[in-house]
Design a protein around this nucleic acid. Structure first.
Lengths: 237, 237
DNA sequence: GGGAGACTTCGGCGGACGCCGAACCGTGGC
DNA sequence: GCCACGGTTCGGCGTCCGCCGAAGTCTCCC
């Protein structure tokens, strides 16, 4: 109601350093303070201050282990908020907000980017070309419908259970069962929410996907490619 | 992807004055620059600067008429974003973010607040005790379901058409048919999206509700009270 | 045409903020 | 016990930002 809380929350994300930290944490993992400092390009002391601020504001939670301080986003709700703001910002038509050409600086960077564009983690669900293709496939097969708001159909639920994804088993607090999340590289929606998280967990659990290095990029394994083809009709180029 | 756009967008809402402006505009109307300046308690020149900034950032759009400059939120998406952030901020458990006791300063203010708590506009849909009661009623009657994401049921659509609310007629771009929006006074969800907007439009069009003064508060008329009772089973205290 | 009113531009003030380097504190390894 | 190392605290610097008042521009109305 009052403007103060809104301004303070927005203020937490209003700094490029803090914003970059939150975006990095969208990969869903817990990072150490040092990793984050290096990743966003500030000195350790600066990162420490900003991290404390984000924790105090409730956006991040910390976990201390020995001489390390691990940080991650406070929860799915927080991740969804950051996602949404980032998507809105990058989709904004205002030229004022568009990025000043963030092109890759070297080959390594370029390779990483193309891998991320193909398949990556977005907090706890799948994004990139694979994520968007999955969303399309599930819509086309009637597992998910968008008639009046995104929803999982009754037959869809059964079908998912048949391939080992049990949505009933997952306790859902107030978290939506399925949610749309705008994909930054594809500029089209992929699936988040409980279903999105379950899909990612299943793909990693069965070995369809595996992480590449420490980033958020994912590799599609040989059995994974077969599974996506057979079950979802997705042919990967 | 890059942190810059995110930080800039958040920065627009990171100032109490700009945040208050956006919250005021959540009533869905177009305000003049002077009204906004007075409402948020800054001098005209200050408001002018901040408004220009919000327009440049794409959050607001302006319309010049004679010597007046009318401002409103850029669209439903923008309103949803502001709503969501505000809800997240006020629901945040972090004591750091909670408001420092914004109690009413006089009787007039107090009266206005209680009217707003009963029924008010939230951008283009209904909020307050009435908004929440409507959401409950529509869920209880099966017009809307929350089984797997909020959705309008097939019989619900027919029932709505029967009382004069035609959802098919409204062109929906990428806007969700029905969406949940956390109510600030009730701390429970009410209905937004195309359905929420249609409900409000219908209630105002049929005279069930009428605006009180220039604020966002709404008065429930005598026929309105009857209609809410007969059609939705809502008894207003 | 003159004047009132809505809005904007500009200069300047004060405070807040983000950054860094240096010193400090704990933990873990040798 | 010592050292390396991750992280934190502190002081200080420069910048940015929001605010106001005063002057200026434009529109409408008489």
């Amino acid at each position: 109601m009052s403007a103060q809380p809104l301004a303070r929350l927005a203020g937490l994300l209003a700094d490029p350093t803090r914003a970059a930290i939150c975006l990095a944490l969208l990969d869903g993992r817990a990072w150490t303070a040092g990793e984050l400092a290096h990743h966003v390009g500030v000195v350790a002391s600066t990162a420490s201050e900003q991290l404390s601020r984000l924790v105090a504001g409730g956006l991040l939670v910390e976990e201390r282990q020995g001489r390390h301080r691990y940080l991650r986003l406070a929860g799915p709700g927080t991740a969804a908020l950051v996602e949404e703001l980032a998507a809105f910002a990058s989709a904004s038509s205002a030229p004022e907000l568009s990025a000043p050409a963030p092109r890759p600086r070297n080959l390594r960077e370029s390779v990483r980017r193309s891998a991320e564009a193909r398949a990556r983690t977005c907090y706890d669900h799948l994004a990139g070309a694979l994520g968007v293709a999955l969303a399309d496939a599930l819509l086309a097969r009637g597992v998910v419908t968008d008639d009046s708001g995104l929803a999982v159909t009754a037959p869809g639920r059964t079908w998912l259970a048949g391939i080992g994804i049990d949505l009933d088993g997952t306790r859902r607090g107030s978290r939506p069962l399925v949610r749309s999340c705008l994909d930054w590289t594809e500029r089209r929606p992929h699936l988040a929410g409980v279903l999105g998280a379950a899909l990612r967990a299943h793909a990693l659990g069965t070995g369809w996907l595996e992480p590449i290095g420490i980033g958020r990029a994912l590799r599609i394994t040989r059995p994974g490619a077969d599974a996506f083809q057979d079950l979802f009709g997705i042919t990967l180029t």
